[in-house]
Design a protein around this nucleic acid. Sequence first.
RNA 1: GGUGUGGUAGUUCAGCUGGUUAGAAUACUGCCCUGUCACGGCAGGGGUCGCGGGUUCGAAUCCCGUCCACACCGCCA
Length: 581
Amino acid sequence: MYRSHNCGELRIEHVGQTVRLAGWVARRRDFGALTFVDLRDRYGITQLSFNEEYNKVLLDSARSLGREFVVQAIGKVTERSNKNSKIPTGDIEIVVEELQILNSSLVPPFSIEEETDGGDDIRMQYRYLDLRRDPVRQNLMLRHQVARQVRNYLDNLQFIEVETPVLIKSTPEGARDFIVPSRMNPGQFYALPQSPQTFKQLLMVSGFDRYYQIVKCFRDEDLRADRQPEFTQIDCEMSFVEQEDILNLFEGMTRHLFKEVKGVDIGTLPRMTFDDAMSKYGNDKPDIRFGMEFNYLNDLVKGKGFNVFETAECVLAICADNCANYTRKQLDELTEWVKRPQIGAKGLVYVMCNADGSYKSSVDKFYNQDDLKAWAERCGAKAGDLLLLLSGDLHQVRKQMSELRLEMGQRLGYRDKNVFKALWVIDFPLVEFDADNNRWHAMHHPFTSPKPEDLDKLETDPGAIRANAYDLVINGVEIGGGSIRIHDKNVQSRMFKLLGFSEDEAKYQFGFLMNAFEFGAPPHGGIAFGFDRLCSMFGGADSIRDFIAFPKNNQGRDMMIDAPSNIENKQLDELKIALKA
RNA sequence: GGUGUGGUAGUUCAGCUGGUUAGAAUACUGCCCUGUCACGGCAGGGGUCGCGGGUUCGAAUCCCGUCCACACCGCCA
């Protein structure tokens, strides 16, 4: 063994012992005749001490060590004369008796410290060095803990982890597939799974009853801070369950994870219908760490000659606590903010609720104090508050106001990363109309079951059908989503028909599932959690990248291995693939 | 596909309205230093100012194009 102890475990009670340590040279402090070396491994840092009086040869050798050299040191654990209370091993040091350089190192391109000087680019290119840094390692440790607790919880409830194939069939619905050519079947292609959806349903037909898998999924869409082309899901499915059973069981899992990983009790999760979420927050994943709910002012603003509001389908207001003291400059800046193309509002109307009970608005020309007072009362505003109004098309103005609400929540400090508010959003619409392509498409996926009482609208009023579908939302982030599935072949056929699949297309793409449903498919349903997002939320980060060991950049490139890359003509020939010029 | 921000020493950045020998910090190299832990001191090396074009007597700086990174919109059943 290269080492008898790791670099994080020696304490005052080990004084006098002779130990062997191995690790990386994090830092060297050289006083000439006295030199200290910080030796680092994943467990911590231990100080090595070299002294001219004790051993001149060893001292010289220590003074030649560069950063990130890999060394083994044998020596005696000694109490320090000057202790360092900042690190757990700070009471002791190793007076080195033997030093062996196991490997040298180039000078690293950025400093491998908690606070690195490296930018994203260089850190990704040398990710293996970045991973030596404590914060990044902590993130991966956290990820490991979360995975372990998921397995713990589900294992105790008789869930079985089953692996499903990665080379599967492409389906044009939903996200773009990653495509893999088949050498043995020239001209044909596998797709990588966007999720193991159909396989887990087949496992239910097989009687596995309770399945889960912590599994890689692939989607060939543009990236974001919280979206990677390959990502990990906690994928679950159960038989003989109704929506209520799934919500309860996975609410339990969520509570378990928060308790075990964060030491936080998130309590009972509220439930909110999709319609309520859209109406109160303009968003199907509301951040309920704060209120600032939407107020509808249509009936109060009409008929006063303010043309913008007269012609608007919807006039919305939110109330920002204690913001009546906003300066003209701040209000102008906020107006510019909502007018950015990403938000797309035409303008912003404000009302200041002054301390003396008077009101000052940007539309004083059209509305008197009584009008403004009525608005303020509708919004539940108190003296000192600021009303912010947006108007326009219902759908758009909700979306814009949702962005503004989140921004104001941020500015007011209501989005504390150490506070966790989770909820279920339920009763999603089954389908939404895609005006561009003049067709309905599934809000969740084509296997989601309509609520039984809405089943008869499948052919008459699809937009009004609610689905047995649900999302787990935490702090405004969609962490999980699932549904009760269709297990009846006829209902599934009607669903495919609604989505514009011909019978042949449905059979070609999902025939295996339809066939399986002819052999006794149990009622079943499930849910999938975004594992990376869950980890980044536990870690208090907005980006999932630092919770993935080797993530991809904005262009979907792995900067370290430089993938994707060209392949040799020989490989293309074997695949019978020609590249277009 | 679009919007925004950025690209200058190994690294992180400053360099504004055009005129400097292109700087700072840190890292690196050498020398000095016996109790540091972000050690300190002295000295030194290090630059295709992303790339291409243009304007100008003169461009890191202004303009156009392009590439790259990040954030966002579209997209993500």
